[in-house]
């Protein structure tokens, strides 16, 4: 599969990675090698094989519907860059 520099730019945008043109070239080369591996995997005949949803053959553990957590926002917010009135403050986002 041929990967273009435009694909690299789009993937970087989706991942919110700020890479410049030089870095894009390097990333492009690395991704190409990864895609080569995927191309190799694609040659395996998987007809009749159920897609795997999880690496372990185990079922989802479930918890009872009970409130077990207490208000710890003061503790959690000690690591936040900016808070006010209990709210986390982030750079303004408006759609």
């Amino acid at each position: 599969m041929a990967l273009t520099l435009a694909d690299v730019a789009r993937i970087a945008h989706l991942a919110r990675l700020d890479i410049d043109a030089t870095e894009a070239q390097a990333v492009h080369a690395k991704l190409e090698s990864i895609f080569a591996l995927i191309d190799a995997l694609d040659t395996v005949d998987t007809a009749g094989v159920e897609p795997m949803a999880h690496a372990q053959d185990t079922a989802m553990p479930l918890r009872d519907d009970v409130v077990t957590e207490t208000d710890q926002h003061a503790l959690f917010q000690r690591g936040a860059p900016a808070v006010t009135d209990g709210l986390y403050l982030v750079p303004r986002v408006v759609e």
């Binding site: 918890r63 519907d65 009970v66 077990t68 957590e69 208000d71 926002h73 009135d85 209990g86």
Partner: peptide, 29 residues
């Protein structure tokens, strides 16, 4: 209409003080 959240034990009650019902799982710590 559960009492607790889908993946954590924090309350789902409406109208609580900001972030008072956001547990470590909800914050993705």
């Amino acid at each position: 209409s559960t009492a607790a959240k889908i993946f954590s034990g924090a309350s789902t009650a409406f109208g609580a003080a900001p972030n008072s019902q956001a547990a470590a799982v909800d914050l993705a710590l």
